[in-house]
Amino acid sequence: MGFKHKDILGLQDLSGEEIYLLLNTAENMKEINSREIKKVPTLRGKTIVNLFFEPSTRTRTSFELAAKRLSADTINISASTSAVQKGETLSDTARNILAMKPDIIVMRHSISGAHHYLAKRVSCSIVNAGDGAHEHPSQALLDMLTMRERFGRLAGLKVAIVGDITHSRVARSNICGLTKVGAKIYLAGPPTMIPQGVERLGAVTVCKTIQEALDGADVVMMLRIQLERQGKTLMPTLREYSRYFGLNRDLLGLASPDVMVMHPGPMNRGVEISSDVADGPNSYILQQVENGVAVRMSMLYHVSGGELPTE
C-alpha cells in the first residue's frame, strides 16, 4: 500500500492503515539512526523548509535532524526573524518561500487550520508540526510508535490523557490516531479543560478524576500545564492543579504494573508530573524523543513519495 497524501495535516485525515504504514516505516528509520553513519541518500536533492511561527526547540530540531539524515537540504525560518513581524500575510510568506522551489514545508503555527489554509494554496507538501489547538500529528505518531514498541500492539491499550484537553493539539491528534488503531482513551482534567463533545472525537471516556482515568491504564500521558497559556479562569493555582491532577508515584500505583508514563515535553516538574515519576522506571519520555526523529523521517519520506531505503 502506498501513501497517497500530498500533505500530512493531521491524523483526522489518515486511515488506520496509513498510520500503521507510517509507524512501520519509522521502525525501519530507527535502524538507520542506530548506525554509525546515520545518513541515507533517500531525499538527496530535496529542499525542506522548516517554517516555525511558534517557538519550538524539540520539534524543530527533530524535524531538522530527520531531514538531514535523509540527506535533504533544510533551512529554518522562525517567526522572530521573518517578514511576518513586518505585517506580511501567511499567504505572501508562503508564496515567497514557494518561489524558491522547496519540496516540503514543515510548519508550526499558533492558529488552528493555518496548514489547511496553506495546503490549498501551494503545490509543495505541507507537514504539520503543530497548528494551534488542532493537531500535532508527528507527536501522536511518535507516541504510538513508543507504545507499540513497549507492548507490541496498539489495539486494546488503555491510554489515560491528563491535563488541558481543550488547548492541547497533542491530545486531539492522539485521540484521533489511537481511536483508529483500536486503543481506548480516558481523559481527565478539571471540567474547565474538557472541551464540549470531546467524547464524540473517538473512543473517549471522560473521567471525573485522575484516579478514575489511571485505573488499570497501560499508558499515562501527562500534558503540559502553563498558567500563561491556559489563562487565569481555568484553574485557581498551579498548586491546586498539581494537587488534584498532578501525577505522582502513589497515583501511579493505580495503573497497570507495566504502565508507561509519557509526556510531550517540555515538562513542568512538580506541577503535572513529579520528578520521581518523570525519571522513574516507568518513564518513556526520552524514548519518545528518540522515536520522534524516526517518525518524522517516515513522514518526510512518505510525503515525498520516494523509495524505501534498501541498504
Binding site: Q12, H134, E135, R169, Q196, L201
Partner: peptide
Amino acid sequence: NEGFTSTELGLKG
C-alpha cells in the same frame, strides 16, 4: 460556535 465542531477543529468557541 462552541461545540463538537469547535472541539474537532481546535478553534476557540
